[in-house]
Design a protein around this nucleic acid. Structure first.
Lengths: 150, 150
DNA sequence: AGTGAAACCCTACCAGC
DNA sequence: GCTGGTAGGGTTTCACT
C-alpha cells in the first residue's frame, strides 16, 4: 500500500526517537504538545506499520577492540551463476551492512575487524563463501555516521 | 569476580542493547543474571565512558519518502588546498554518513533523497560546497544494514 | 561491584468524548 | 484520535555488604 503520507507530528516523533531512542512517551508528549497516551498510540502505530524498524544502542567499536573498518565491493567470478551472495555471507558476523548496488560491482559490504590480519582472513572467507572477487577500501576515520535524515 | 567475567557481562549488555535499545534494566538483569541495580550501574558506566554513544530508532526511509540511497565518493579538485570537506558538508542534511578512506578518493558519503532529480541537485551542492569531483554509486536494495558486530 | 527496599516516574490500558 | 485516570511495572537512589 502506498498510503504513506506521514504528517508532521509523526515526523517529529520519528525525528526525536531517531535522535534518542530511549526518550519516554511523557517527554515525547511535552515535545509535541500531545498527551502521553496520544504519543503512546502514535508510536505503537508507527512500530506496527514498520515505519520504526526497531531501536538500538550505538556502540563505540574502537573502544571495543574493533578499530578497523572497511568497505569491500564484491563481483561474481562466474556471472552465469545466480547471485545469492547476501544469503551466503549472512553468517559472517564481521559484515555490518550489505548493499546491492548499480555499477562495476554487485554488492558493497561494510565490515569491522580488530587487525589487518583479521581483514586478510575475512577477505579469504568472503571470496570462498560467495565465489566473488573483492575490492577493499579502508576506512581511516568516521567524521559522522548514521545521522538522522528524517 | 575476575576481570574477564566483568568484561564478558558488559559485552553481553552491549550486545543486548545494540539489538534492542529500549530493553528495560529489569530484562537486562534477567538476561545477565544480575540485579536491576547492578545492570543500571553498568549501563550508566558504559554510557559515561562513551562505550555506548547513544540510542536511536531505526526508521524505514522508503516509507518516509526517501527511497533513493547512494554512495558518493569525493576527491578534491585542488589537492594543494587543505581538505576540510566534512565540515563544509556537515550542514547538508541529505548526507547520512561521511567516512574518510584510503584509496583513489578521499571521502565516501552515504546519502538519501526522494528522487533522481534531488540526487542531481544534491551532487551540484556537494561539488560546489567542498570543491570536489564526485563518483556516485546507486543503492538498489539493502539486504541488511548496521547489524551489531559486538 | 553487587543486593534489596522504597519513592518516584512511566507505561499500558480503559472509558469517555 | 485525543484526554484524563489508574494499576502495575520500571527506574533511580540509598544504605549496606
Amino acid at each position: 500500500m502506498t498510503q504513506s503520507e506521514v504528517e508532521s507530528t509523526d515526523r517529529r516523533i520519528l525525528e526525536l526517537l531517531a535522535a534518542d531512542g530511549r526518550m519516554s512517551f511523557t517527554d515525547l508528549g511535552k515535545a509535541t504538545g500531545l498527551s502521553t497516551s496520544a504519543v503512546h498510540q502514535r508510536v505503537k502505530r508507527l512500530e506496527s506499520r514498520g515505519m520504526i524498524r526497531g531501536y538500538g544502542a550505538t556502540i563505540d567499536h574502537e573502544q571495543l577492540g574493533l578499530p578497523l573498518a572497511a568497505f569491500i565491493s564484491i563481483r561474481p567470478i562466474d556471472p552465469s551463476q545466480p547471485d545469492d551472495s547476501p544469503e551466503r555471507l549472512q553468517g559472517i558476523r564481521e559484515i555490518e551492512s550489505c548493499w546491492s548496488v548499480a555499477g562495476e560491482e554487485s554488492y558493497i559490504l561494510k565490515i569491522r575487524v580488530p587487525t589487518p590480519a583479521d581483514l586478510e582472513d575475512l577477505l579469504a572467507r568472503i571470496r570462498s563463501a560467495a565465489n566473488v572477487a573483492t575490492r577493499t577500501t579502508i576506512v581511516l576515520s568516521t567524521p559522522y555516521e548514521n545521522r538522522s535524515v528524517v
